[in-house]
Design a protein around this nucleic acid. Structure first.
Lengths: 245, 245
DNA sequence: ACGTCAAGTGTATGTCATACACTGCATGTA
DNA sequence: TACATGCAGTGTATGACATACACTTGACGT
């Protein structure tokens, strides 16, 4: 294997696999990635610069390049470091729908703990070990649905993409306070939208489609992925039925 | 209206609305945006810098700031400039499903003509005039489905997000030649994935879930949004049925 | 003729990734 | 013990970038 990995991937699949025995002094890949993740957790992706990573570790900027080929590689490693699959997902689940919901709940939590993940300039299909682990768990849930493997893969891709979009939107709307920004958006829309130009949108706004009831709990005010997920899962259920029948 | 627009939005809703009479010499908002879009079309988002925009127009970098508050504003304007809604979508469509498919086909074309759109660091809900116009057309298609306005909005958001993810993936996989990179990905996966760590994924790979038949037409090899869309639309259909029943 | 203002310029600053040449140390070999 | 080798970390330099700020210039209204 690995004769010709795309640039930056070799680190993921080779060097990080070794559990690096006991912690030695000095720089190391995992230390770099750790520091970078801390920076991103605290200040978002913009806070991650080679200089700041090095500073936090007490080394010079250029020392990082002994361990890493480029910043892009650091970002890939950050993604993989953060995307570990909790053991919970190894337990089999009889009902595929419940299984996928569990999978989404877990990933949703991860995406909110490290919301910068949704802003990574990494667009391709899953490729890091932990990304593939997530994919694997989702495929496992679909094992006995009777779908073709290709359809299973399509379903997993669909759901993973949806979750990522939803998480991005969710963190954008309200990093912490939630609700409030949704209300702000609603007000903004109400002000901007002209009936003649956007009749259908105007109708939706006037019907309160973008409002939240003022007495909603915080849970209800927070952007929720379940509406979209339920639609998708209904669609998957239809596909499964169709395969069976 | 517009007493307190978020930063950068005032330009979209005010200054650009005026059709600026006849073309005068000198810089102008639309000229800047035009140049920026050309740069992005040719070289991707990375090719867009204030310096290069100005250079292309024969002005100095700083002259742009007479017309624009920040680069972020340029990006917003680029998005809006490119996201015009074709008149085709104004024609009513009796069947909501066909209507949404037409909507997606149209938007998909736009996203591929300007693939940098999928990489814009703009995550929020639709907010520019043309984004809202797209939203409006999609809501119009759903008018007589019996869904609540809130559900309609949710469906539109779901589909728009899906299309954006799919377009990003599609352009990432194969900007032009397509197919080839999918094959490369498939091969890569086959090499990397270990049965013990990723049993379900291994099964999918071995079943050819990530391959394309060697005799597939180019159309078949190109990443296709229709699988995911069909699932989503099936889910929406279920929701509509449920509302009706 | 004069004041005002808008458009465009020029220069400077700070941040960034990263190339490249260097140093000092530890380790293995003759 | 002497020496070579190579790795880890350093320092300096470059070029791209966004943008602050002070400036010029020319048109236009009074």
């Amino acid at each position: 294997m690995n004769e010709k990995l795309p640039p930056g991937l070799d680190l993921l699949w080779e060097r990080l696999d070794a559990p690096t025995s006991e912690p030695k002094p000095g720089l190391s890949l995992s230390r770099i990635v750790h520091a970078a993740v801390e920076l991103a957790d605290a200040g978002g992706l913009d806070a991650v610069s080679m200089g700041r990573i090095a500073e936090r570790l007490g080394f010079t900027t250029m020392s990082l390049y002994r361990h890493v080929k480029s910043k892009h590689e650091v970002l890939l490693l950050m993604l993989d470091a953060v995307a570990t699959v909790p053991a919970e997902l190894d337990e089999p689940c009889a009902d595929w729908r419940l299984g996928l919901q569990r999978w989404c709940r877990t990933q949703w939590a991860m995406l909110h703990t490290h919301s910068w993940v949704t802003h990574l300039p990494i667009a391709g299909p899953p490729i890091t070990p932990n990304q593939l682990a997530w994919t694997d768990r989702a495929l496992a849930v679909l094992r006995d649905t009777g779908l073709t493997e290709r359809d299973k893969a399509g379903v997993v891709l669909l759901i993973a993409n949806y979750l990522l979009s939803a998480a991005r939107l969710s963190t954008e709307l309200g990093p912490a306070a939630s609700g409030e920004s949704v209300a702000a958006y609603s007000t903004l829309l109400g002000d901007l939208v002209d009936v003649r130009r956007f009749p259908a949108l105007r109708t939706a706004i006037d019907a309160g489609a973008f409002d939240y009831p003022p007495d909603a709990t915080e849970q209800e005010r927070r952007f929720d992925y379940s509406f979209g997920l339920d639609r998708i899962l209904d669609g998957v259920a239809a596909l499964i039925r169709q395969h069976a029948g």
